Amino acid sequence: MKKLAFTLAVGFASFAATATQTIYDTDGNAGRVTNYDNAAVDALVTQSSSAYDLSIYTPHFTNPAPCQAAGVYDVLSQELITTLNVSGKTLWGQLPKGYENRAKYVEATCTDEQGNRQALRHNLAAAPQLAFTSTINVSNWVDSDGFGPGYFQDVTYQGQLNVDNGEPGGFCQSTSLVGQSPKLLNERHNTGFYSDVVSAQGEAKYSARSGVLVNEVICKSTGGTTRAVEVWYISENQQNREITVETF
Rank of each mutant, 00 (worst) to 15 (best):
A119D: 01
A9Y: 06
F61W: 06
S144E: 04
F147W: 08
T20V: 15
P64C: 01
E216Y: 04
P168N: 13
Q158R: 13
E246F: 04
G148P: 04
A19T: 13
D25Q: 12
A204T: 08
V229P: 09
A127T: 11
A40H: 01
L185N: 03
E79P: 05
K220D: 05
S87V: 11
A200T: 10
Y206H: 08
A127R: 04
V142A: 10
F193A: 13
D53C: 02
S195H: 08
N186V: 13
Q94C: 02
R241P: 02
T226Y: 00
K183D: 11
T34S: 12
S77T: 15
G159L: 03
Y157S: 05
L54C: 06
R241I: 10
L8V: 15
F147S: 09
V214A: 09
T247V: 10
N240A: 11
A70R: 05
K97R: 14
T20D: 05
L120G: 01
N29Y: 01
Q158C: 07
Q153W: 04
R121V: 06
Q153C: 00
K220M: 07
V217L: 09
N116K: 15
N35S: 15
D154P: 05
G71P: 00
S49H: 03
L161E: 06
Q238C: 10
V217W: 03
V214P: 06
K104A: 09
G71K: 05
V142S: 10
N85P: 04
Q160N: 11
Q129M: 07
W141C: 13
A131I: 10
D145P: 05
L124V: 13
N63L: 00
H122G: 11
G88Y: 01
Y57T: 12
Q153A: 08
V86C: 04
Y233F: 11
A70Q: 06
F193D: 12
Q114H: 14
N186Y: 15
N165H: 10
G179C: 07
S235F: 04
A19L: 06
W232D: 04
F15V: 14
G28I: 08
P59Y: 02
Y73Q: 12
V75G: 07
T226E: 04
T191K: 14
L4T: 15
H60D: 12
N123W: 00
Y233P: 02
Q129F: 08
T111L: 02
F147Y: 04
A119S: 09
G88R: 06
A228G: 14
L120V: 09
V163G: 06
I136G: 11
Q78R: 12
V217T: 08
Q201S: 15
A51V: 07
K220H: 08
R227W: 01
E100M: 02
Q153P: 01
Y73V: 10
P168I: 12
T175F: 09
L54S: 00
N162Y: 03
T191A: 11
C172H: 05
T26S: 15
A17C: 07
C219T: 14
L80Q: 12
A119Y: 00
